[in-house]
Design a protein around this nucleic acid. Structure first.
Lengths: 237, 237
DNA sequence: CGGGTTCTGTTCGACACCGCACAGATCTTC
DNA sequence: GAAGATCTGTGCGGTGTCGAACAGAACCCG
């Protein structure tokens, strides 16, 4: 466990040339991200853009009747708040911390100034946004065609890729909110996957035992998204 | 009916200041878009970016088993090929002409040069991309939560908004491919909506009789997307 | 006009997920 | 360690979509 936090735990920040890092890093604010914390509400003005390091953030759409569905998930590979530089300032979705941790944030105006320099940061942000688009598109496809079991595995893998450990802290109720299904459905899917020996489940904790097994059990959507992220945002530790 | 085509039938092109139009318009190539024509294949290098005027283009993801699902639809309010300026050059989806018509296209390199000027065109393209993101996100939500009837109405309205007439030429089979459902499902949904007196159906032609009725019958997703497009890309004829 | 093609409508059982109700298990707190 | 809260597992009927098979209707073309 590293006793000191470093913005470079975020892949986008890590990919910046030294020169840009020296200009930007002093302006970053280290921000704790407690579980369930809402970074942006649907339609609300965003004040900051967030670069997660150890936290994971879900982009959720919440319907009028209260039902919800996850649109995408963001971890240390990306950034929360793309509409700040895309020009819209707000989005109709909500950003909520799905796994507690840390992020570095930058005031919106500073981010916009940086974007307008048209330097490496702009390039990275746009490429990341395209990867995010792919994730959303694939979520749409997956919601249409694939079984809950497969979607559960996909969700698990996407979360796992954004965590340093193989365990995630998450109740079935919350997973159900993310996937936009009933809690009982998650109970069943998780039970199936556990019986197959791929995960170990205990009250709010999921430990992944067999990653390859999960990948075999999920649909093609996971691989499509993963491949596209790797292509657009190559990263080496 | 205008006997001459004009790039300004595309809202993004129309929104450019005179100065930018004079630079760009001479480089545009008027391109016929026949029904079913594939503009980009999944993963293939894009050569041009397309600004539809009277055509409508579907962005589809086609799965390994051949099943498909529409991710978004683009008409004269937007542009096909955002990954050219986002930096990825390709996407894992396919762009297919859903309704025949015309478009103006620009070679990829010219578009990228224009984007790098960081002028009005860049601003428009980014804002449009954010609107497109909203459409994709809402497609994901809709696929998860809403009935086929509602999705059929949403699809109809989104297409209608991009057409000059109230009639669209489209078989149930094709609509089913777009929505990612069975053809029989579309038969039933269309039958329901026709019995309600909102549309008139005859072998490959759908005429909308009661637009307000359709809006009442669809889910909130349509309004969310519409509102976001209007907010991000205000347009007056 | 007639024959062939394409598109649309209907039926049927199968199955996945829903909504609800409730029991049981596990953790927390005092 | 007992009480309470939270989380997880299970059973039930209901419903919407699927998959397949087939009949009928509309259009096209020779």
């Amino acid at each position: 466990m590293p006793e000191t936090q470093d913005p470079r735990q975020n892949h986008l920040l890590a990919a910046l040339p030294v020169e840009d890092r020296e200009r930007l890093f002093p302006k970053l604010e280290e921000t704790p991200m407690p579980l369930g914390h809402v970074l942006y509400e649907s339609g609300a003005q965003m004040r900051h853009i967030y670069f997660p390091t150890t936290a994971i953030v879900s982009l959720l759409y919440v319907m009028e009747d209260g039902a919800s569905a996850e649109i995408a998930v963001v971890g240390n590979e990306g950034v929360v708040g793309v509409s700040l530089f895309m020009g819209g300032e707000t989005t109709p979705s909500r950003a909520v911390v799905q796994s507690a941790g840390l992020a570095y944030r930058l005031p919106g105006q500073l981010l916009k100034d940086e974007f307008l320099r048209a330097g490496p940061m702009q390039r990275l942000l746009l490429r990341y946004t395209q990867a995010l688009i792919t994730q959303m598109a694939q979520t749409a496809v997956c919601n249409r065609h694939h079984s809950l079991d497969q979607q559960f595995c996909r969700w698990l893998l996407l979360s796992l890729d954004r965590l340093p450990t193989n365990e995630l802290v998450m109740t079935q109720e919350l997973i159900a909110n993310m996937l936009g299904v009933r809690r009982e459905g998650v109970t069943e899917a998780a039970g199936n996957v556990q019986r197959a020996g791929l995960i170990e489940y205990r009250r709010g904790h999921i430990a992944v035992l067999d990653r390859a097994g999960l990948e075999a059990r999920t649909c093609e959507c996971y691989a499509v998204v993963k491949k596209e992220f790797d292509r657009l945002l190559p990263y080496t530790d």
